[in-house]
Each structure stands twice: as C-alpha cells, then as structure tokens.
C-alpha cells in the first residue's frame, strides 16, 4: 500500500472465549466404555456390514441409523500410514517429535488417527501391528487411549 507507515502499528491481543462441547449419547457411550472399561466400541451398519469407528448415529452415505448395533473392536490394529510431527503447537498432545498414525483396529473398517509410541520414530513402518494402551487417569475423549504401542 502506498501510505505513511509511520502511523501504523500492531496491537497484540487475543480471541478468547469459553466453550463446552457435548459428545452426544453415541459419542458418550463410546468414551465412557473407553475410559471406564478399556473397551473400544464401534457401531455396525445393517445394510452392508460396515463397522464405523469413531461410532456415530448415522452413515453419511446411506443415512441408515447405526446407533444400536454396538460391537467391540481392537485393542490391536495395523498401522496403514503415519507422519512424525516435528513442529510445535500448544494444543498438541505431547512434545514433538511424536508419531501420528492411521491405525485400523481389528474389526473396524477404516483407520482412526492416533498416537504411536515406538521408541525411535525411525522404526515406524506401515503394516506395524500395534495395541492400544489406555490412560491411567480418566480422560473424556479419544485420549482415554493414551497411545498405541508396537506388538512385538
């Protein structure tokens, strides 16, 4: 812009507001089972037998209701893809570097994104068999699984 920069300055501020998110009945049932019983629950559609994880009320493609047909999946699964997070942000679940992977739990149709603790990140590979490690303290979200670790 063609103007006098001497009049310009920058004011440090923030956007900050309180929020409260609700997981809903279906999400809550999943989280409570994870937190209290260390069980990973998914929902299975009747139309084509797809097992959805995270669980949800409905299939986005067929709109069939899914919420009543609960099945247990995992705790073991297979890594189908991964990245090593090396940049830092305040919302990250742990100090970088850490592995964020797509993990298909046994019994589920599609992978979820979660953390893998594997010692050296260089040892990560697709196809690795991993197992859920549950958090010691109660956590009310997907981090009730603290991370996955390699099954030797």
């Amino acid at each position: 812009m063609n103007h006098d920069q001497q009049s310009c300055f920058v004011i440090e501020g923030r956007m900050a507001l309180p929020y409260q998110y609700f997981a809903g009945a279906v999400g809550s049932r999943f989280i409570v089972a994870l937190r209290d019983d260390k069980k990973i629950l998914a929902v299975r559609g009747a139309k084509n037998g797809t097992t959805f994880l995270p669980p949800r009320q409905t299939c986005e493609r067929t709109f069939e209701s899914l919420e009543d047909n609960w099945v247990e999946v995992g705790p073991d699964g297979t890594v189908t893809g991964f990245t090593v997070i090396r940049y830092r942000e305040p919302y990250q679940p742990q100090e970088p570097p850490y592995v964020l992977a797509l993990i298909r739990l046994d019994g589920a149709d599609a992978p979820i994104v979660h953390l893998v603790e594997c010692g050296e990140v260089a040892s990560m590979r697709v196809g690795m068999r991993v197992r859920a490690v549950f958090a010691d303290d109660p956590v009310d979200n997907i981090l009730a699984i603290r991370h996955f670790t390699e099954v030797k």
Binding site: Y21, A23, G27, I31, P54, T83, I85, Y87, E89, Y91, Q92, P93, L100, I112, V113, H114, L115, D140, N141, I142, L143
Partner: peptide, 14 residues
C-alpha cells in the same frame, strides 16, 4: 471435532 480428532492434535498440516 472436539472428541475424536482435536485431542490427538490434528490440524491441516498434519
């Protein structure tokens, strides 16, 4: 979403 994908630290870069 606040329960399944935010907690693991996803953003568009990840």
């Amino acid at each position: 979403d606040p329960f399944f994908t935010r907690p693991v630290g996803l953003d568009y870069l990840a």
